[in-house]
Design a protein around this nucleic acid. Structure first.
Lengths: 168, 168
DNA sequence: CGCTACTTTCAGAAATTTGTGAAGTTAAGA
DNA sequence: TCTTAACTTCACAAATTTCTGAAAGTAGCG
């Protein structure tokens, strides 16, 4: 089994790559992510350089440029990939920053905030002294607690990571 | 039709309830949950007793018994509601245990485990010494870290909750 | 300035998901 | 045992989502 370096033409066992990509994407889908973003993300994760062009993605996943465009837009919004322009070309590369992306995954912050807002409204409109209001207030407190804890956890991860894998 | 369960107390404004239910459900949907389970869950959360019968749910949400059945099956699988048989009736009640349910929400444990499995396979099949393999190994390490942290966090929440809201 | 190489947008076809009515199943109570 | 209230399952219609091809935009380079 030969391990080709990637610089020029990454001819890695395409079947092994594809198997991983589809398998991991399937798990992400099951967790609620849309299929195409999940596949694109998995493909990037499985690339040696951590970045691929739009054309490469379309080729590898057998989908149209339009599909890649849509998926990438979504991923960029979620901060799960970065877009970078290749200097001297209008070709774009999409990249998983090994740090960045899992922060994004935990970064349900925006989601949590909206849940909290909805709950706060519920507590007010149903009455803080009603049983339902009390239950919702407790739920709200839980999310607020989680918010803070997640931040602290990510900080610990950064430390742990540097110890284990070296430089940031 | 002895259904006036939420007896006593001030009349609840059905419109306020509905507004909360639909609003909160919408947020859950946006985060990846299916619509009907989200609505059912929100309705339970907003009920004073914390539990409703299948008929009450169908009535309040304007959906068929079949839809309620499906939604409730899903929620029970996710441990987000408990089913209880009313003694002396085949009527069933669905309940949010104020503790239980947010544990379930954080309880992505099963999900995380499957992600980890997929990543482990990827590391093996692409080679632990390849750049892609290393990236996936780091990702895997992150999830393993999160697993442990979540457990610890829930423990801290239990303590915090008892201090703030009293008895479990 | 316009050519060309990419990317994005958009309307609609195709696939998937969702909810319904109706039939099927189960168990309480007579 | 039979009746009947209640939940569940199933096939299908409706709604929604997803992907595509084609047209339109955008920016480097001659």
């Amino acid at each position: 089994m030969t391990e080709r370096a990637e610089a020029a033409g990454p001819e890695r066992d395409p079947e092994a790559v594809s198997k991983f990509v589809e398998g991991f994407a399937a798990q992400l889908v099951e967790a609620g992510m849309q299929r195409m973003p999940a596949r694109v993300f998995a493909a990037l994760l499985a690339s040696d350089s951590g970045s691929l062009t739009s054309a490469q993605l379309g080729e590898q996943l057998q989908v149209s440029p339009a599909a890649v465009s849509g998926a990438v837009r979504y991923l960029a919004q979620q901060h799960m990939v970065a877009r970078e322009r290749e200097p001297g070309s209008r070709r774009e590369r999409y990249r998983v920053h090994s740090n960045q992306w899992y922060e994004a995954l935990t970064n349900r912050e925006a989601v949590l905030k909206r849940w909290e807002a909805a709950l706060r409204e519920g507590v007010t409109s149903l009455g803080a002294e009603t049983p339902a209001g009390r239950r919702m207030a407790e739920t709200l407190a839980f999310f607020e607690f989680v918010d803070e804890e997640i931040a602290a956890m990510m900080e610990r991860w950064r430390v742990h990571r540097e110890k284990t894998f070296g430089a940031p």
